Simulated assay, not measured.
Amino acid sequence: MGRTPSSSSSQPHMVFSMLADLDVKDGQRVLEIGTGTGWSSALLAHRLGAENVVSIEFDPEVAKGAGENLRTAGISPLVIVGDGRRGYVGGAPYDRVIATCSIGEVPRAWVDQTRTGGLIVAPWGPLYGGEAIARLTVDGETASGSFTRSSAFMRLRQQRPELPEHDAYFKGQEWPADGTRSTSTLSPAEVGGWVEQFAIGLQMAGAFWTVERYDDGAYTLWTYSTDALSWASADYEPGADSFDVVQFGPRRLWYETEAAYYWWEGQGRPGFDRFGLTVDSDGERAWLDSPDHPVPAVG
């Protein structure tokens, strides 16, 4: 038995906020990814009619519980056990698609199964951290739109990464191994906020972090590359104005973090609602204020 939660019931405020983003109209068909308890499915079915709602749940036991809840409520949308990435072509095309699990990549099937002019509403976030609700309008093979608000959902199971362990980077050596030492005036505490992580993550593909905390309030922020070739440590001490850094590998991950953070700061510290996402045949591109202003990559 695993120790990581796989399903939960979202806060009412978030459920209603996402449904407001979805903006359903009479007669529309909706595909929901992640049935969970069945609460959102029931709300959608009450609003649109059960025949217009399809919900996909990967976990058979969770789907069973949702089915029981829906029957008790006297509402019967179609609940399917399956891989949510694939959508459900049997009910397509849809006017709306909503995900109640977070993603790091919009599945192509969701765009293909949505009518032109339809909406996809989904929690989206980079590997590094941070997450927000993407509200994308579909136009043929393209989906594009802004983020509406902060979010924090469990990741779609098939998009949960297998990340290298700490020891994989050192191969038996002790820290600082062959790392290069330096100091930084950027505090590790400054990069830990949810929107800061989001902005940094948009620019730093293939990177993630962990924190090693100590009893005196100090901690080490570890940043790693997913290919297990590069790492950086940045030591935070309360009250300090300079922070010790060690970096190793072809990527200088702390320098990348600094560059990404200062870009965000230079743009006026934008919140989630100034960012957007475009998905098309070339992949995904995050942007600031307009699709014409893509978020730059660092490194």
Rank of each mutant, 00 (worst) to 15 (best):
S10P: 14
D227M: 01
F243W: 07
D23V: 15
P123I: 14
E284S: 05
M18V: 14
D216C: 06
P270G: 05
F58L: 15
D21L: 11
W124Q: 10
P12S: 14
L156I: 10
D26T: 03
E51M: 01
V298N: 03
D244G: 12
V89M: 15
W39E: 05
A228S: 06
Y262K: 10
E284M: 11
R252A: 09
L186T: 10
G27S: 07
E212V: 10
F16S: 03
G38L: 06
A240I: 07
A42E: 15
V24K: 14
P107G: 01
R181F: 13
G82T: 08
Y219R: 06
T114E: 04
L78N: 05
G125M: 07
S151I: 12
S55E: 11
T37H: 10
S146D: 10
L186I: 11
V79T: 00
P60K: 02
T100W: 10
M18T: 09
T116C: 02
V15Y: 02
L22G: 09
D215N: 00
L78E: 03
A92Y: 08
S187N: 08
R85F: 05
G118Y: 01
W264N: 07
F275C: 10
A232N: 03
N52W: 08
A234D: 04
W175M: 07
E141L: 05
G179A: 13
Q247Y: 12
D23L: 07
G74L: 12
D273T: 13
S102A: 12
F248R: 13
K25S: 12
E32P: 15
G283H: 02
V97C: 15
E190P: 05
S17I: 13
P126E: 10
R274G: 06
V195W: 11
A20I: 00
V211L: 00
G172R: 06
H293F: 12
E265S: 13
D112V: 15
L288H: 02
C101W: 00
W175H: 08
G118C: 11
W254L: 09
V54M: 00
E162H: 12
F208S: 03
P294V: 02
L163A: 14
E57I: 01
S242Y: 08
G271D: 00
V54T: 09
D167V: 06
G117L: 04
G27W: 10
